[in-house]
Nucleic acid binder design. Structure first.
Lengths: 209, 209
DNA sequence: ATAATACGAAACGGGGCCGTTGCGTATCGG
DNA sequence: CCGATACGCAACGGCCCCGTTTCGTATTAT
């Protein structure tokens, strides 16, 4: 009978990698990505400096910038909350509320920026991010809208792509516009009641009922 | 009586600057900006190469990258078409049609990308672009919506910021989503009837009437 | 203690782009 | 023709970042 490590992976003798350093690197990467525009602007040296870490420590863990970015963004993948299913309106508000909250966070916002703007330059990476982050949300919203059409809560001739664009686009654009006023200022979070008011306008439309 | 140049600005003797070169530089700049993400990626050397021009020729006209970008983007400022004023629906479709067409053009799209993503890094330049390009459209749309509320064509309790976000955000997001399917492929232009269908969903909402 | 590994710091050669300068040529006015 | 200016081209020194290597030190298992 050996030590307590009997049949565990057998740590490979030597100083173990610092979990703290890894955390600091990921954090620094997220900060710098959200401050920068585009991942081309992101430099490993800047990450190392911000994280208080040697470049060696980064290259020991990730072989290139792309891998680092993917791992860093993976941290942000907050799972979608479950929906009650009681009504389309209620579930829509739930999703809108998630988007409202995320739109107020620079780190979450940069995921969309990357997916939207860097599809050409880093198609493999963006595709990975899309599959992990965007796709599930897209499908959840689509399912909600389809259900609404079936139950009659939504109009029978609903144009699904348009409806999806209305929901997501409106939130995103509202968040962007809110940041326009004060240049650079982050505009922080959006009004508490935004999700509900958005749902109201989206469902009822702009004309009087 | 002197020459025919009597009281004209008196051309400053010497070879005049080539209008063709200037045109080529602007074109190359627009191309490269729309291919690149962020103006940090844009390099003067690349512009010169693409335009078939010496760097000297660029620096002789613009003292820095920012000035060049502003001048280049100014070319895209297609003026807004006049609206008939017959109905809010009709005018809304007119504006949506403009946006649809522009959303299919990479060069026009990059203006919005820049305004949205680079506000922090190049606030002075972005503000100039916003004033020249975004602001007038914003005001035109706002005027249209206000008029609609007054005439009763739009709901009296319309939330203006939300309504604006709905109109613009939906088009933008739809265009983006359309480009998602095929990675890198430009998705070209959007369906002919899009503007009308968008107007219908925006005005009537997602629920049955 | 010793071997193995990780750490931060510093330096390396290489590449890209900066903004400038010099060169030979082309195109204008006088 | 002559002076002036613009042109394309190539080269410059400088900066930043790349990805790698070397160094001295720290932390672990044996």
């Amino acid at each position: 009978m050996a030590t307590t490590d009997e049949n565990r992976p057998a740590r490979p003798a030597g100083r173990p990698r610092s979990a703290k350093a890894e955390k600091a690197i990921i954090e620094a990467t997220l900060d710098l990505i959200s401050e920068s525009s585009g991942i081309s602007d992101l430099s490993i040296e800047a990450v190392a400096a911000r994280a208080g870490v040697g470049k060696t420590t980064i290259y020991r863990r990730w072989s290139n910038k792309e891998d680092l970015v993917v791992d860093a963004l993976a941290v942000l993948k907050a799972p979608l909350p479950p929906v009650s299913g009681r009504s389309v309106r209620e579930d829509l508000i739930t999703y809108l509320e998630v988007m409202r909250r995320e739109a107020g966070d620079a780190r979450s916002r940069c995921v969309m920026n990357i997916v939207m703007n860097e599809g050409d330059r880093h198609s493999r990476m963006v595709e990975r991010i899309r599959q992990a982050t965007v796709r599930p949300r897209q499908e959840a919203l689509e399912a909600l809208l389809r259900r609404g059409v079936e139950t009659g809560e939504l109009r029978a001739d609903l144009d699904l792509p348009i409806a999806m664009a209305m929901v997501v686009g409106t939130v995103m654009w509202y968040a962007k516009s809110a940041g326009f006023g004060e240049a650079g200022a982050d505009a922080g979070s959006l009004p508490e009641t935004l999700a509900e008011r958005l749902a109201d306008h989206l469902l009822s439309g702009l004309t009087p009922r």
